[in-house]
Design a protein around this nucleic acid. Structure first.
Lengths: 136, 136
DNA sequence: GGTGGCAGTCTCAAAAAGAGCCCAGCACTA
DNA sequence: TAGTGCTGGGCTCTTTTTGAGACTGCCACC
């Protein structure tokens, strides 16, 4: 358990950062966030933060991901510099995926959100149930 | 600028939380995260964190969102309890959207990731360029 | 009587995700 | 020597999600 102190920007500043001060479409912050909000990105990042894994290990670890999406998501994470891919020339060549320093740094920031989700999923579930019951 | 101290869990614990200790598919943490990683969720949350907005204001504020996705995303955010929707019975009825306490609390956690994105988008862009150049 | 703002809905096309079969190469085994 | 299984993917097909844009009803204003 590490603890740290972080300065948060004002909400207005965060909104401005996400809109690039007016140039909403090509904003780099949105561009970065976009690469992270795929369906499997955060889960795979969390798995690789635990320890490096090979392709088949990840597939078994996350049984409900298709091979196609596993390949695709790892490719995207590697392209954005979060994940390192290393091929070992063993008899059946094995491939190991691990987090880069950038990936670890990103995951540290992501962890706040994941932890919030863990602490508050009951509230979200309740809100959802309540909302659905009023919508008949 | 507020600052705060937060205890982060070990990476292994985070991974376990996201996999519900084995029940990967129906994990509540993944369920919550899923509702947040839509293409527009974080941007709209950031906008509403700044101040409440009405439907048309949001549309003008984020010109590259379609009306359909604006309706849909606001509906989802409302369903999960992040956003409050209030209809004012003016002559053309106006609708105001604002963050709930839950939404504000979630945004506080999300902000770490947004800020990381702002600080590191150059590194991500560089990684992407370098990767693309090796892939011919 | 035409125009414009309000908050959406509806339909259709394009993009992304999911399911599942196929591949080559090597080891072990019967 | 043929069968089986493991490795890390590629490939196609179908379903779901997203995007673009036209359409609605109401009212105020000109």
């Amino acid at each position: 358990m590490d603890s740290r102190t972080v300065n948060l920007k004002s909400k207005l500043e965060v909104y401005k950062a996400m809109t690039d001060g007016g140039n909403i479409a090509d904003c780099p912050v949105r561009d970065v966030i976009q690469g992270l909000n795929g369906k499997w990105s955060s889960l795979l990042t969390a798995a690789l933060a635990e320890q490096p894994y090979r392709f088949g290990e990840l597939r078994r670890l996350v049984p409900d991901i298709s091979q196609r999406m596993l390949t695709q998501t790892l490719y995207d994470l590697q392209r954005d510099g979060y994940v390192h891919r290393e091929v070992f020339p063993t008899k059946p060549p094995s491939v190991e995926y691990s987090l880069t320093d950038l990936g670890r740094s990103m995951f540290d920031a992501l962890q706040y959100l994941l932890q919030w989700a863990e602490n508050n999923h009951d509230a979200v579930r309740d809100a959802r149930t309540a909302f659905d019951s009023t919508q008949a």
